[in-house]
Design a protein around this nucleic acid. Structure first.
Length: 704
DNA sequence: CTTAGGG
DNA sequence: CCCTAAG
């Protein structure tokens, strides 16, 4: 091995000591359970349980006109026992009848309407959890007018959250995380009744949770949407097991990055696996015109800067307060607007539509939501952009989710699990309802979790932000997929949907394309059901609005307990350095061995990046890609050192071929010349790549 | 994990 | 970009 020494040739390039591998090697991080992770689970459980309860209660109180939101937590749960009809769980005609019979006019609109006009405090006090549900299930019965719900939420990590409750110009914004943080301790009181007939009641929900839930909702009207009459939600009451699970670290994936400073060593960012079973429809012309902000915003630090190599993960560990503050600002701004979710719209906003049937795509949302009041945008210098997720289905007019780009994947999953549950439970498909119910129950118990795929790849790190994971990137339009992943260990057999292919199809064709939407007659679904109530796929992948031919089938990966992703952790505050990235998280070698992932999104190097690369290579040589990465692409997390190496390889090749043969974005000849020079130089000094080489064309630094 | 190279 | 042998 060559003794590596650095020689300063006058360039103030920070020579980064390269410690022996053994020393550099990062020790395995001890997973640390973040209280907030537990909290997230609890929250989900609470909400899920609430949703179930509410489904039932809503059908019972079909005539209620109260202007309050019903929140049953802590109330007498037994009173509704009679509403449960096991027939509803039957897939046959009987069950169908029962469902139809149970169909009621859910007064949710009214409740929602009225509630939304409450002031923040009132809202929060009025069992806001229900709001979440109400808003989630915008679909509403006899209401001639429909409400499109817009959900907005921040990170469930508890560090920041943009929560709003908006309706008709009124907006209730509340930054609830402070209280949430404080409320984590109290947790929920669980009521478990193995007899099953009893309702699991989540009592004693902390005010924090209420706030959390309630403040997550934002509602906007959508005049164009069609109403729909939800059927009775017939989900069995189940046990909601809540409470902290400090003893179960493994249940939660460790999202907490090590807080230890690992000198000059970032945390590995990803491991990619192919997932060949996924097909992605190219963005159709429909989306071509959509505006998307530049994907890459930030550049990397210059090598010779005095910047210390502080991994982002490392840095973020001591940022909570700042993030909170940052978000507070955002909230304030938002709430001051007094108008719906558009308040967060800014040039960075991206939209993503998701069809409940399994599609999601990005695009402008002008067509689905009213434009933000002009004059407000100026106040949105707040750089946090949002990703708007619109979920549609035949049963639900439309639901918007607006997630800050720096919102976490975990929060998105969280939301989805709730929404999905609700939507499925509102389906007329009794079988699915049951499944949903079970899934929720299992989920609550840690047996199921919501998976998220981006371009076929698992987005497993809930702590990642949408920005970081690339979900907010236009490049990933139409490549978002949710999926419920049952845990074979804890999930009832009925939850092992292995026999039910995960389906993704266009909403317009799902009824005919979705395998599970084509139940045998024995399931008792009428034709109308097949057409109007296509069972929500277990996994939902998106596609653009015009792609109605792709049916994506994917096996529902089995996840281990430790993979439970329902938690979320701190988010990384947006910064210029955090350019978008496609980040994957290490997968379980075993479990994923067979799982194939799709290629990463192709991300052509910009001239700036090339320049940085060349510059770095000139200094560091061609055999230290890791250092090059750290030096010049520290902030470009979507560029791995392998990427850089590959890029260099291609650059060399490009420089060697005739300009006419070059393709892609042209690279300045000057750079190519430098590439050749550096390449020639370092090729000649392979064994001595420890020097610096500022300008290979002119001076060949002396090597030692 | 990094490198180095082939695919 | 991916994959993988080597170190």
């Amino acid at each position: 091995m060559v003794v590596k020494k650095r020689v300063d040739h006058g360039f103030h390039v920070p020579v980064i000591p390269k410690a022996p591998r053994s020393n550099r090697r990062r020790g395995a991080f001890k997973k640390k359970l973040d209280g907030n992770q537990t909290w997230a689970i609890e929250l989900l459980a609470a909400v899920a349980g609430k949703l179930l309860l509410e489904n039932e209660s809503s059908s019972a109180s079909s005539n209620e006109k109260e202007n309050t939101i019903h929140f049953d937590y802590g109330k007498n749960p037994e009173k509704e026992d009679g509403q449960y009809d096991d027939r509803l769980f039957q897939a046959g005609p009987l069950g169908q009848q029962a469902r139809q019979k149970e169909t009621v006019s859910v007064p949710q609109i009214d409740s929602l309407k009225d509630t939304l006009t409450l002031d923040t405090n009132q809202c929060l006090q009025s069992e806001s959890a229900l709001l979440f549900q109400e808003a989630s299930l915008v679909s509403n019965s006899d209401c001639s007018e429909n409400v499109t719900t817009d959900l907005k939420f921040g990170n469930f990590k508890g560090i920041n959250a943009s929560s709003k409750l908006v309706r008709k110009g009124e907006e209730i914004s509340h930054n609830f995380w402070e209280s949430v943080e404080g409320g984590t301790e109290s947790g929920f009181v669980k009521h478990i009744d193995e007899e099953d007939k009893n309702v699991d009641v989540v009592q004693n929900i902390t005010s924090s949770s209420k706030e959390l839930l309630g403040s997550c909702v934002k509602c906007i009207r959508s005049p164009s949407s069609k109403g729909y009459i939800p059927e009775t939600l017939s989900l069995k009451r189940r046990i909601v097991s809540l409470g902290t699970r400090d003893d179960d670290e493994n249940i939660f994936r460790c999202n907490q990055r090590s807080t230890k400073v690992k000198a000059y060593r970032p945390i590995p960012r990803r491991r990619v696996k192919k997932f060949l079973t996924y097909k992605y429809k190219k963005v159709s012309s429909t989306w071509k015109d959509y505006y998307f902000p530049n994907a890459v915003r930030g550049m990397w630090p210059v090598c010779n800067s005095r910047k210390t190599y502080c991994g982002r993960e490392r840095c973020q560990s001591d940022i909570p307060a700042k993030k909170m503050k940052l978000f507070d600002q955002g909230s304030v701004l938002t709430s001051d607007r007094g108008i719906r979710g558009e308040s967060f719209c800014n040039l960075h906003e991206k939209s993503m539509k998701a069809n409940m049937s399994g599609s999601a795509h990005f695009g402008h949302d002008e067509n689905v939501v009213s434009s933000p009041p002009k004059g407000h945008k100026s106040s949105l210098s707040y750089k946090d952009s949002h990703v708007r997720l619109s979920i549609k289905s035949l049963r639900v007019p439309e639901i918007f989710i607006e997630v800050p780009e720096n919102g976490t994947v975990g929060s998105l999953k969280m939301f989805y699990s709730l929404l999905h549950t609700r939507l499925m439970s509102s389906s007329g498909n009794a079988l699915l309802q049951k499944r949903v119910f079970e899934a929720v129950a299992a989920m609550i118990g840690g047996g199921v979790h919501v998976g998220l795929r981006l371009r076929g790849r698992k987005v497993r790190d809930d702590s990642r932000t949408l920005l970081q994971t690339g979900i907010s990137s236009k490049d990933n339009a139409g490549t978002l997929a949710f999926e419920l992943e049952p845990n074979p260990v804890d999930v009832p057999l009925s939850l092992c949907f292995n026999d039910a292919p995960v389906v993704v199809s266009d909403s317009n064709h799902q009824s005919t394309r979705s395998p599970i939407s084509n139940p045998t007659p024995s399931t008792g679904f009428g034709a109308s059901d097949l057409i109007h109530d296509p069972p929500p796929p277990l996994a939902i992948a998106n596609h653009n609005s015009e792609s109605n031919h792709d049916v994506v089938l994917a096996p529902a990966p089995v996840k281990s307990l430790s993979d439970c992703q329902l938690t979320s952790t701190a988010i990384v505050p947006y910064s210029e350095m955090n350019a978008e990235e496609l980040t994957m998280v290490p997968m379980d070698q075993k479990a994923r061995r067979s799982e194939l992932a799709q290629r990463r999104t192709r991300r052509p190097f910009s001239v700036d990046e090339v320049e940085a690369l060349v510059h770095s290579v000139e200094k560091l040589g061609t055999g230290r890609w890791r250092d090059v990465k750290l030096c010049a692409f520290e902030g470009a997390n979507h560029r791995t050192y392998v990427d850089l190496k590959d890029k260099w390889k291609t650059l060399v090749h490009t420089a060697q071929i005739a300009p006419q043969q070059r393709r892609g974005q042209p690279v300045p000849q000057e750079l190519l010349d430098r590439v050749l020079a550096a390449h020639a130089y370092w090729s000649q000094h392979q064994d001595k790549q420890i020097g610096k080489h500022q300008d290979a064309l002119i001076a060949i630094p002396t090597e030692v």
